[in-house]
Design a protein around this nucleic acid. Structure first.
Lengths: 245, 245
DNA sequence: CCTACCGATCGGTAGG
DNA sequence: CCTACCGATCGGTAGG
C-alpha cells in the first residue's frame, strides 16, 4: 500500500479515510470467515484463534474490530434477524390478492431471503442459545411473523374455497420446512438454479394446499358439496369391496 | 431373569447383575441428559460439568461410564445414524406398489422416525462437525439412501403418469424438508398429535407432486379416500359457516 | 494491530 | 483384587 510522502497537511485526513475504509473491509472479512466457521463447527466449537488464522491475524487483533466473541456473533446475526420483517412488509405492498398467487409469491420471496443468507441461517440454527437476548427476541418475532403470514394466507384461501388443509398451522409449518430446508442443500452452480428451485417449491407448496380443480367447482355451495360427497362415498364403497376381493 | 438368592456362593453373581443393571441405567441417564444439553447449547457449548450436574454426579464420574466427551457423543448418535437404513428396509417389505400410497407411507414412516429421535436429530445438526468419521460417514449414507428412495418413488410415479414434478431431486428435497423440519416444531400434547401431523404432511407431500386433474388419484385406496373425504367435510363445514355469516 | 500476560475454566486423569 | 466414585489437580487453552 502506497503512502503519500509529500503533502504533509492532508496526510491525516487522507489516512483517516483510507484507514476507515480498510477497517470496514477487514471487519467484513472477519464477519464472513467467522460466519462460515460458526456454521461449520458451531459457536462454542469455534475459537477466536480459528477465525484470526483464516483472516491472517492474531487472535488479539480480533479485539480491535469487535468487543468480544459474542459481539462478533451479534454483528453477523444483525441482518438475518431484522430482514424477514422488512421483506414481508415490502412483499405485502405488491402481493397478489388471490390466495394461490399470494402463497406462491410469499414462498418465492422467502426462499430468496433464506438463500441470500444461507450461512447465517445455519449459524442461527447452531448458535441460537448463544445469541444475545435482544437479537434472540427479534429473531423469534420474525419467525412468528412468518408463521402468522403463512397461516393467514392459508386460512383466507380456505375461506374462499380455493385451499383445503386439515390444520392451517401444520400446513404452514410444513411449507416453512420446505422453504427453510433449502438452506441446507442448495448450492449455486450445482443442479437447478435459484429461480428454478424457488419456482418449483412455490408450486409444490401451492399444490400441497390447493383444491383439486374439479373438486373446487363442487364446493361452491353446501347442497352441491353434499352431493359430491355422496358420490365419493359410493366410490369409497366400491374401493373397499375391491380390496376385499 | 431368575436369580438364586439362597446359595451364598452365588452372592457375588447377584451383586454383579444388580451392578450391571444400575450401570446401564446410569449410562442411559447420562446419554439422555447429554443429548438434551447438546441439542440446546451445542456440542462445544456443553461442558462435561453441565452434564454431570444434571444427573447428580461429579464430572469425573462421567469418565467411569464413557471414555471421553467424543465417546459420549458417539454413544448418543449411534442409533440415529443406523436407524434410517434399517427402517427403510423394514418399510420396503410391506410398502404399497402404487406410487401415491408408496410416497405417503414413506413420508409417514420417516416422520415417525424423525420424531421418535427428535433431540438426537437436533444434536446431529449442531454436532455434525464433531462426529467421529465412521459415524459421520454412516449418517451421510443414511441421508443419501433417504434421498435416493424419495427420488425413486417420485421418478416411478412420473413414469406411470401419476406424478408430475419439474425436477425429481428438488421435489424429493422439498418433501425431506417438510419431514425433517417437524423435529424443530413438533411438541407432543401441543396442537395436533403425531398421527394427525404425519397423516396431514404425508397427504401434503403427495398433493405436491401428484397429477392435479386426477380426482380419482385420491381414491386409489380406502385410507387415502377417507382422508380426502375428511378434508372435504372440513371444507363443507367452512362453507356452511360462511353461508350463515 | 502484536506481545505478553491474567483469572477461569476446559477436557481428562492421577492417587486414595 | 474390584466397583464406583470423590477431591484435587494435570497440561493446555479459552476469552479478555
Amino acid at each position: 500500500m502506497h503512502k503519500p510522502e509529500h503533502h504533509k497537511k492532508s496526510e491525516s485526513n487522507l489516512d483517516e479515510g483510507v484507514r476507515d475504509k480498510r477497517k470496514a473491509l477487514v471487519e467484513k472479512q472477519i464477519m464472513e470467515q467467522a460466519c462460515l466457521l460458526f456454521a461449520e463447527k458451531g459457536y462454542g466449537g469455534t475459537t477466536l484463534t480459528d477465525i484470526a488464522e483464516t483472516v491472517g491475524l492474531t487472535r488479539a487483533a480480533i479485539y480491535y474490530y469487535f468487543r468480544n466473541k459474542e459481539n462478533l456473533l451479534e454483528a453477523i446475526m444483525e441482518d438475518v434477524t431484522s430482514a424477514p420483517i422488512r421483506e414481508i412488509a415490502d412483499w405485502a405492498e405488491t402481493a397478489p390478492n388471490e390466495s394461490g398467487g399470494r402463497l406462491k409469491s410469499f414462498v418465492e420471496m422467502r426462499i430468496r431471503g433464506v438463500l441470500s443468507r444461507q450461512a447465517q441461517m445455519r449459524v442461527m440454527e447452531v448458535a441460537e442459545a448463544a445469541l444475545p437476548a435482544e437479537l434472540a427476541q427479534r429473531h423469534k418475532a420474525g419467525k412468528r411473523r412468518i408463521l402468522e403470514e403463512y397461516r393467514n394466507i392459508i386460512k383466507e384461501g380456505m375461506l374462499r374455497g380455493e385451499f383445503r388443509a386439515q390444520d392451517d398451522r401444520v400446513a404452514a409449518l410444513a411449507i416453512i420446512g420446505m422453504v427453510n430446508w433449502t438452506a441446507s442443500w442448495f448450492t449455486a452452480g450445482r443442479g437447478k438454479e435459484l429461480d428454478e428451485v424457488a419456482a418449483q417449491i412455490a408450486n409444490m407448496a401451492l399444490q400441497s394446499v390447493i383444491m383439486p380443480q374439479s373438486r373446487n367447482a363442487s364446493f361452491v355451495d353446501a347442497p352441491t358439496a353434499i352431493q359430491t360427497l355422496r358420490n365419493d362415498l359410493d366410490q369409497l364403497a366400491l374401493l373397499i369391496n375391491q380390496d376385499k376381493a
